[in-house]
Structure formats: structure tokens, C-alpha cells
Design a binder for these strands. Structure first.
Lengths: 206, 206, 206, 206
DNA sequence: GATGAATGAGATTTCATTCAT
DNA sequence: AATGAATGAAATCTCATTCAT
């Protein structure tokens, strides 16, 4: 459950005594189901099976719960992106890997993706997290820049904007799945992966 | 003000007696400044310079105000996209026009764009508007499809996904401006326009 | 309609231009349907087919509408009771006539009875009308007293309390009809009439 | 306080920690003083000396408070009426006991009687409680019927209507006390008791 | 007389947060 | 650590009443 948030060092299911983890996982499910604003602290506690006062033992506020969900997820994501960056591979291959990283998260933990897409990506309460979100786009940007330096990519394109294009494309496809506008079977996910890479690298022109 | 929402038949500023319009414009400014959830109905009324009870004369609820802002804006946007679709032009040129349409809205009415990007694009309360948002992507999809039929675009790419890629790219650039991650001077907007079209049509590869 | 409230001097239907009457009749229907507190001034106006501002042309407030309904009805009722009092008849016959007067109002104007029973008889807002309600019981009391003086009725009973007993019995039967606890066909009404008189005059004992 | 609502098993005053009871008792006092509609939830809380939010910990709404007052009182009353029914006694004696039960409640808890008479007995919001109110009249009806079967009472009177007559008489006398139309000293209460029984059983006729 | 847009006091209700136990 | 009763700020929404037209 919520593998993307945190994995026990030994890979085992977290001890049931870990109420903090229990609350975070419950929060993701509840936020996914009802939305951050529409759910109450009591809903999270009920989902976790604890008294709602306990939430304040582990978190400062309801908002901090959302921020924690975001930060724990995002730092794991950034780390994964960085290891793609550092692996020896063509820029195109790196873009493919990052694309896969993002899009496969949907199958791994749809509730978490739903929360990130709907509650965190752009909502006002996350204006402060902009820095961390930006960090991801900068990684994308570095991949583009390295591609340009090596001659693999065209140099006339602004790497910052290009990174935004790629990032936006990925986020939109996740959104399509969250909002059920796009089919999301295993094959569909694979097809989406190739499509993004194909468009971005080769362009639409025949 | 809020040119995107509604334009007087004669192009003049709406009569100041139109309190409904006054409230909608005020709501856009307040939503942009504080966010939908953080602002109170009283803030909207104060911004409009009317008693807050009047809001309920014209709208059922605070939420209906947001929905109205969205719907009025979106239908104008859809209409604009449709006229691009119907104009004689290459698929690439159509994509460029649509890109311009979206990106220039930022200079025309940044408050409105801010609201749409942050409050409407993905928030839970807009799950019901999905149909209308989807309608825009379908227009994009039709442009891609026509490009494929004419031989201008490659046929092996899924038009639905490609539309999502383009749409997501545009939305992300607007988001970058909203969140001040990207520079948004007049030249920057023009550069963004070319960049999106260049990436999407010609690809990154050298 | 609402014959009990006011009858045109000539017995004709009030001119449709008489908006005051229109509003009072509408108010009775709306109060009967939704209750005084649950209905809004706008409901009354809508039922009357006029703008709600007009109500304030004829009445000081919503409460005054209810008071007017009560007062107009009640003074007609008191007058009718007084003519029974003054007619030559045995005390028993007078009680019968008064009973008939009260119980038959249900068939004449059930909406009006419903309003009087539910909104006026005991609600706090009518505490001030006590005097007028009391007036009715005093008429009953005088009938009892005259019956005692003439030797028709037993003298050991307190006339004030006896009047309350009779009055309460009548009100309760109306209430039974209002709340649909008692059958209210024509025959049922006649039977109720005899029952009240029989119990009160002859008693239950065999 | 509010002995009629609930009595501690040991007959002692409820523990002051029982905030629910505190709120119910406070509500009775406030409803009696200002009326249900004229009082605010904040008044009840202030009277109880707790924060008004606490009321919503124990009750769904202000209306549920009134309903609870009614239901708890009424079920105690119904139980008392039933034990009178089951006790060996003549029908007349049973009527006397029930009469005493009702009329003495005024001395026991005038605030509670005031609330029941004014807010519950007939107000629209209690239309749903009709069933429970009816239950009381049915008990009265059974007493009359048993009196008829044993030959103590005349058989030609409708027991349902007769029950309404008795019930209405009692309610009206309570109302007289509530509205200060009738004297309510200890002797007056005793006299009212005899008067009702005398009228109903022996009739007015000399 | 007649309209209905406009006002704004005020009420209920919600719910994040605290804290005694 | 854990509970959940208690708090109270705050927000939406209602609706009687006013008044310019």
C-alpha cells in the first residue's frame, strides 16, 4: 500500500504500531476519494482506525499531512529521476526512462497519483512547494541540455521550455487517467509511453 | 476587464449596472488573489462593492460562481478553437494558432488564467466539468487527425494521446507563468509559442 | 375562498384588484401548506401572484399578516358566538350551536382552521392575542353560567373551568382533523358534534 | 430539574459531567422563556454553560434537541398512563388518575409543560410526532372502552371522540396555566382535576 | 400602486485544533 | 501514546425588509 510513499527498510509491511504511516496512507486514500478540502481530519482518523486527536501527535495540522505526503513522494521521485540522469544513456533513452517512471506510477499507486495531480500540482496551498516541483523540471531540463551538447538534440530550442513541454505532457496523461478521459490498461500505459517519446523526439511531421 | 468571459456586443465595457457581471469579475480577481477556498463570499462582494446577499440573487452558491466563470470562459475558448479548426490552413498552422490562442490569454487576462489553472483545471470540484474540458482536447485531436489524413502528420501516432501531449504542454507553460517559474514578457510568450510548435511538429532530434 | 376571513358586503367574489385580500388568502394557503416559520414572504407573494414588495404596502411585516388573518377570523367568530348567546335557547342548545359553529368551520375552510390550530392557538408569537382567545372562552363561560342560573346546569361546577373543558374538547377535535387522526367526513363531523354535547351535558356515566 | 425528562436511577441529580442532560435541561428553560424559534443555539449553550459547538456533539441540529425533549418526556408520560390503565380501578377512577397525572405535571415542571404545550403539541415541526401523541389518546380511548364494556359508561358514545374530548380538556387547562388565563395555585389544580372528572363523567346537566 | 434588485443582520452549522484523562 | 469531549472562530446562506424606479 502506498509503496511510492515509503518502503520499510526490509521491504516488509510496516509494523502495525506505526501509526504515523497508518495515518499517511489513510490520508492518501481519503484525499483521493473525497478531495483534500472536502474531507475532515476525522475522516482520515477513521480511515486509519485511530482517534483523530492522534493525528496531532504526528502532524502539526491537516495541511502538514498533505505536505508530508507530497514531500515524501516527491523526494523519492526526484531521486529516481536523478539516477536516470546519471546513468549512461542517450538523451532520448533518458527521456524514455523518465517518462516510464512517471507514467508507471499510475499503476503502482493510483490513489497517490490522484492526490498529487488534483491537490498538489497546482492548488494554491502548494504554492510553497513550487521549488520542489520546479526541481523536477530542472532535471528534465538538464537531460535536454545534455542532449543538445552531445549533438543528439537540436540546439535552437529553449531547454527550460522544452522541459515544461515534456513535463506537461506527462502530467496531462496522468490527469487523463485520473479523470477517466483516457484508457489506462497495461497496454495503454505502454502506448502512452511510446507516444510521448515519439512526439517529443521525432515530432508529428511526416 | 475579464475580456475572456464576456464581451459587450459593442465591445464597450459592460454597463456598471450589471451587478452579475460585476460579481463575476470581482470573483475572478479574488479567486486569483487568495484562491477559491481561502476567500469568503464576503470578499467577493466587497471587491464588487455590493452586499454579499446580492451574490445569492444571481448565483446559487459560491461554487456556482466558480462554475459560471469556468463555463462562460470555456465556451468562448471552445468557440475560438472551433473557428481555428474550420479555417483553411495546414495542420501545423492550426496547431500554431491554437497554441497562440491559449498562450496569449495569459497577457489578456492573467487573473482569469490563474483561476482556471489553479482552481478549475484539476480540482475535485470540477470533476463534473470534465466533459467540457475534454471537448477542448477533442478539438486538438481532430486537428491531428486531419493532419494525418492529409499526409502532413505521421499516421502511427495515437491522435488522442497526441492531443493530450499538446494540451498538457500548453497548460504547463501557463502554469509556469502563473507560478512564476517561467519568464512571461511579450517576447517570452512569443518564444514559448514557437517552442511548443517546434517540439511538437519537428521533434527534439537533430 | 376563505369565506371565514371576510365576505364582500354584497357576497360577491372580491374584485381581483383587491391585492390585500389576495395576499391574505394566499398567506392562509401558504401557512397551511408549509407553516408560518417555514414559509417566506416571497412564497406568499408568489402564491398571490404579486411582487413581494407589495406585501409591505398593505402590511407592516410578515407577522402582521398572520395577526391580521387571526384577527379578522376571530372577530367574525366572536360575533357568531355572541349571536348564539343572545338567541333564546336552552343552555344545552346554545352549547350545541357553538359546537356546530366551531366544528363546521373545518368543512368551510380547512386551510384557515389548519393555520389557526397550528400557528395561532398556542404559539409564542400569539401570546399577545391571548386576550382575544380568552374572549371566546368567556362567552362559553357565560353560557354555562346562565345554564346554572336557570337551574338547567349543576351549580357546583366552576364555569370558567367548564368553559375551558368545552373549548379544549372542540379544539382537540379540530386538531384531530388537521393532523388526520380523526375521520372528517360529513357524517363524522355531525357525530363529533353530538358526541361533544352528549359528553359535556350528560356525562359518560351510564 | 426537568424531573419529567429523565430521572437518575438513584433519584439523585444527574452528574454535572453529563453535558447532554445539561444541554437538554437548558434547552427546556430557554425554549420556555423565549420560544423555540426565537432562541438561538447559542442561547441554549450559554444557558448550559458550554460552547455551542458541543450541542452538535450530542444532537444533529437544534430541531433534534426539541424532538429529544419531546420524545424523552412523552415516553415517560406514556409509561405512566399505561400503569394507570393496568391498575385495578373503575374507569372513572382511571380517568381521575390520568387527569391528575397530566395536570400535576404543571407543578412539577412548568417549563417543560410550557414547551410541550406551545412548541410541540401542534406546531408544524411536530407533524411527524403525531404517532406518539396519538398513542396517548389511544390509551384514553381504551379506558373509555373498558368502562363501556363493564357497563360503567354509556355505550352510545364513540370512544375515540370521547378520548379526544378528555385529552383536549386537559390540554386546554394546561394551556390556561401556561398563558396565565387560569389560576394555578395548588388548590386550583386540585379543583381543575375534580372539575374535569365531574364534567366528563357526570355531565353538566342538573 | 407595483416591482424586484439590493441590503445586511443574523442564524445554523462545521470542523480544525486543544487538552484533560 | 491514545482518546474523544470540548472549544470557538469562521463561513455560508437565508430572508425580512427597504427603496429607487
Amino acid at each position: 500500500m502506498s509503496a511510492g510513499i515509503a518502503i520499510d527498510p526490509d521491504g516488509r509491511v510496516p509494523a502495525s504500531g506505526d501509526k504515523r504511516r497508518l495515518l499517511l496512507d489513510a490520508a492518501v486514500r481519503v484525499f483521493a476519494r473525497k478531495g483534500y478540502h472536502a474531507c475532515r481530519v476525522a475522516d482520515i482518523a477513521a480511515e486509519a482506525g485511530v482517534a483523530h486527536g492522534l493525528l496531532y501527535h504526528y502532524f502539526e495540522s491537516k495541511e502538514e499531512v498533505l505536505q508530508t505526503v507530497f514531500r515524501e513522494t516527491w523526494s523519492a521521485f526526484l531521486e529516481a529521476v536523478r539516477s536516470v540522469e546519471q546513468a549512461e544513456a542517450s538523451a532520448r533513452e533518458q527521456l524514455r526512462k523518465v517518462t516510464a517512471l512517471v507514467l508507471r506510477s499510475w499503476r503502482d499507486d493510483p490513489d497517490l497519483v490522484r492526490v498529487l495531480v488534483r491537490e498538489v500540482a497546482r492548488s494554491p496551498q502548494v504554492e510553497r512547494e513550487v521549488e520542489e516541483i520546479d526541481e523536477a523540471q530542472r532535471a528534465f531540463q538538464r537531460i535536454v541540455e545534455r542532449g543538445q551538447e552531445s549533438g543528439e538534440f537540436r540546439r535552437e530550442l529553449d531547454p527550460r521550455l522544452t522541459a515544461a513541454v515534456v513535463y506537461g505532457a506527462l502530467e496531462e496523461i496522468l490527469t487523463g487517467w485520473v479523470l477517466r478521459q483516457l484508457p489506462d490498461g497495461d497496454e495503454d500505459v505502454a502506448r502512452a509511453e511510446s507516444c510521448v517519446v515519439a512526439v517529443v523526439c521525432n515530432g508529428l511531421l511526416a
